[in-house]
Computed example of a mutant assay.
Amino acid sequence: MTRPWERFFFICTYIAQGSSYMSPAAYAIMHRMHHAYTDTDMDPHSPQFSKNLFGMMWRTRQFYVSIFKGKMKVEERFTKNLPSWPVFDKLASSSLSRIIWAALYTVVVLLFSPTLWFLLLLPVMVAMGAFHGAVINWFAHKYGYVNFKLKNTSQNLLAIDMLMLGESYHNNHHKNPSSVNFGKRWHEIDPVYPVIRLLSWCKIIKLPATAPASRMHMPRVHE
């Protein structure tokens, strides 16, 4: 996409993620590493190296912070064509920004929740982005079904995924990482795919010619 549109979506990402904002560039590097090193010790978020979900979340955070602060040497192949707005990333990732968002969430809960018990949800609200990633990278590497036999533990967590917006078709994604449509079987609905096609039709984004966008009907393959 063009630089103005890229920065527009930076701002949209910040509004949507709030206190759990993650740099698109740093996260893209980490995600590319996940695909290149799946289930090895260089995988930023593999359940193979953590005893529980929170251990994996902490390990992922260490990778992310090291990448974001430039403390980790990153291979050149992971740094190509990244979205970049360093000044905005620094402000959106600051402690002050996260505190302001957390305070805003607290005020909303106090004003609109029917009971103060809802305050117990604040930690999840503050770290929602991390929890979303953890759900996929933990559970979708442990449970579900597979369409493709791969040399990793990725699985499709849900047969119909409206909850995680297609992200839980993780086995499909590891098979075709560049595909804009995570769904492959007839019942695997990726609700983000039509949005991507709409953005492409509106000339807001340009899809690479090599990115497979078509759906496939295939028999289910079991491990």
Rank of each mutant, 00 (worst) to 15 (best):
T153C: 07
I100H: 03
S46P: 02
S179G: 09
I136L: 14
P177S: 11
L110Y: 09
E188R: 14
H170T: 09
L207E: 11
P44L: 09
M42T: 03
K149E: 04
G18F: 00
L104N: 08
S179L: 06
F68E: 08
Y64G: 00
E223P: 08
D89R: 00
F8Q: 00
M57W: 03
N81Y: 05
F78T: 06
S214M: 11
I205W: 04
K73L: 05
A103D: 09
A25G: 08
A16Q: 06
S214D: 13
H173Q: 08
N172V: 05
L53H: 07
K151D: 13
K80D: 10
E167N: 04
G133S: 08
R220P: 01
F139C: 13
I15G: 09
S23H: 02
A102E: 09
L158N: 08
Y21W: 12
S95V: 15
S179F: 05
I136G: 07
M218I: 15
I11D: 04
R3C: 01
F8L: 13
K51P: 03
G183H: 11
L111S: 14
D41F: 06
R59G: 04
Q48L: 15
V221W: 04
F139R: 04
T115S: 15
C202W: 15
K80Y: 12
I205T: 10
H173N: 02
L91N: 02
L121A: 15
L207V: 15
S46D: 04
L122M: 11
S178T: 15
M125D: 06
K151H: 14
F139K: 03
T13M: 01
G70L: 03
K73N: 07
R61L: 08
V180P: 01
M128C: 08
F131Y: 11
Y27C: 00
S46I: 01
D190N: 12
P114W: 03
A130K: 09
H141R: 07
Q17D: 02
D41W: 07
W201Q: 10
T79H: 04
H35A: 10
H45P: 06
S179A: 15
W117R: 14
F9W: 14
I67A: 00
F118L: 09
T153S: 13
L53I: 15
M57R: 07
L207A: 12
A26P: 00
K151N: 13
L157P: 06
